[in-house]
Simulated assay, not measured.
Amino acid sequence: MTNHDFKTLRDKLNGSIAHSDDEIDLQEQWNELHRRAEQDALNDDENWEVCGGFN
């Protein structure tokens, strides 16, 4: 992949370039992965507290 390919992919994922019809499912998968990562990040602080952090 070239830098241009990465920039195009980034722009499609952030919504500044429209997807073709066959890429809609990929966007939905990306959104789900992003949502899960955000959820996991929220749990990181809670897990840190439960485990007592580093002592």
Rank of each mutant, 00 (worst) to 15 (best):
N3Y: 05
D45W: 08
A18L: 09
L33A: 14
F6I: 03
V50L: 15
A37D: 03
H34W: 09
Q39K: 14
S16Y: 00
R35W: 06
W48V: 05
H34M: 09
R35V: 05
I24W: 02
S20I: 07
D40T: 06
M1K: 00
A41F: 12
E28H: 11
D25S: 15
L26S: 06
I17Y: 01
L42S: 08
Q27G: 14
W30C: 05
N14L: 08
I24E: 11
S16T: 15
L33Q: 13
L13P: 00
T2W: 00
G15D: 04
K12M: 03
G53K: 02
I24M: 13
N47A: 12
H34N: 05
V50N: 11
L42R: 15
N3G: 09
K7A: 01
G52Q: 10
R36V: 13
N47L: 15
H34R: 01
Q29T: 11
W48E: 09
D45M: 10
A18Y: 02
Q27F: 04
H34G: 03
E49S: 10
G53H: 00
I17S: 08
D44Q: 10
G15K: 09
V50P: 03
D22H: 04
E46L: 13
T2D: 02
K7D: 00
R36S: 12
L9D: 02
E46K: 14
K7Y: 00
N47D: 12
L33E: 10
H19N: 12
D45S: 13
R10Y: 00
R35C: 07
M1T: 03
L9G: 01
F6L: 07
M1S: 04
N55Y: 04
E38W: 10
N31S: 06
N3A: 12
Q39W: 13
Q27D: 12
D44A: 12
E46I: 15
G15V: 02
L9A: 07
A41M: 03
G53M: 01
F54C: 07
Q27K: 15
D40H: 07
